[in-house]
Design a binder for these strands. Structure first.
Lengths: 210, 210
DNA sequence: CCGAGGGCAGACAGACCGGTCTTACTCACG
DNA sequence: CGTGAGTAAGACCGGTCTGTCTGCCCTCGG
């Protein structure tokens, strides 16, 4: 397959930070569908984006869509996996590890990354939380979201263990409360939500020191 | 807004716990619609419940529905107002004030009420957060949800002022992060989310003492 | 007795949903 | 050249959505 010269609108902004739509501009149709799904789902939610819009955005025929993904929900699952890699691993955890040297610093740096993220004009809250609340914890997509949220907690727990903190799992669960609460507050418009959460996070670290 | 005398009173409200469907079985059709909306919207979200289901549940004709509410969104706004009264004021704040004697105790008691609420089998997360994330902060319903979330913060701030805490507005915003974060964690299945948030809330109080 | 109006039931409109299937075209490969 | 795989385009299906409109019944005031 040769590159279409006119393949639709890929701003392909290569920003060094969180790659909102850097989601792999691949020439094959499956990659185009995934890229469109990432852009639309992360910004507007799953229920607000229909299959017709997805195929129009990705320049793909409907039959092609359903050859690559047996259903819309299957595409959402693929989107969640991609979100875990691009947002959780590459952006949040990756940036936090770059900004801090010690595990404790890296933990606190999560909220520095959050602070920058909250300021972005395309800040769209956390897809895992959105889908969990949108579909409910019993729906397959809600269950998948719970799983990816647990992975986030796993990153926090690993850093807590490296920092030698007490009861790292409890620590990670409390820490996650601060992360999720600050995201919702930021959606409400509280610009300083990350700072507030970071302050409480500092107290949490103190209370988990040996 | 004027108080209608027949404004679907709150008789069953006497229940000690959170009146999930105490929302008034009133004889008039408007009250029946509102009661059905409260039950369905609070449990399953706004987008998942259609007008047809609402009229079937309330035993009302479609024309009657649209005579009382010009649109579904108008009914959602009325639901949010009712939710503010039944959930925020009567249940959360009311119960917390009953459980504590001093303002500080009453603040911490919020998370005791949360702990009981999280255990309920019909726990359905916070309608304001759900609708905010579902519709987005720019949608009229999202804006209304932000407004009602600010009212919750107002209750917290008032208690903080009574307790003589420093910077009560900052305190209330940080406190609210804990409330919202614990709600999302509870939706994920963390039974002890309220306890974790309460512990951090205690530290927050300490740091706001004069 | 009678007319007006509120409420119930439900058909209907128009848009959109996820998903299936047909048609026509291109291209790689034997 | 022939064939089959992959694709774009889009008609189509059954269903759902919000919202409108038409009947018909029941009640109540005069």
């Amino acid at each position: 397959m040769i590159f279409d010269a006119d393949h639709s609108a890929e701003p392909a902004l290569a920003r060094a930070d969180f790659p909102a739509e850097a989601a792999v501009v691949s020439a094959d149709s499956r990659g185009r569908i995934l890229a469109a799904a990432y852009e639309l789902f992360s910004r507007r939610g799953v229920r607000d984006v229909g299959v017709n819009e997805l195929i129009e955005r990705s320049g793909v025929a409907k039959a092609t869509f359903y050859r690559h993904f047996p259903s819309k929900d299957a595409l959402v699952l693929a989107f969640l996996e991609q979100r875990d890699q691009l947002w959780t691993v590459d952006f949040i955890v990756g940036q936090a590890k770059l900004r801090g040297t010690t595990p404790t610093e890296q933990l606190l740096a999560i909220f520095d990354v959050f602070g920058d993220w909250f300021l972005r004009d395309d800040f769209e809250a956390c897809s895992f939380i959105n889908i969990l609340l949108e579909m409910g914890p019993a729906h397959p997509l809600g269950l998948a979201s719970i799983d990816y949220l647990a992975r986030i907690r796993g990153h926090v727990q690993a850093l807590a263990e490296q920092a030698g903190l007490d009861r790292p799992e409890d620590f990670a669960r409390s820490w996650h409360i601060l992360m999720k609460g600050s995201i919702v507050s930021a959606t409400e418009g509280d610009i300083q939500a990350a700072k507030r959460a970071q302050q409480m996070a500092g107290w949490l670290i103190e209370h988990h020191r040996s």
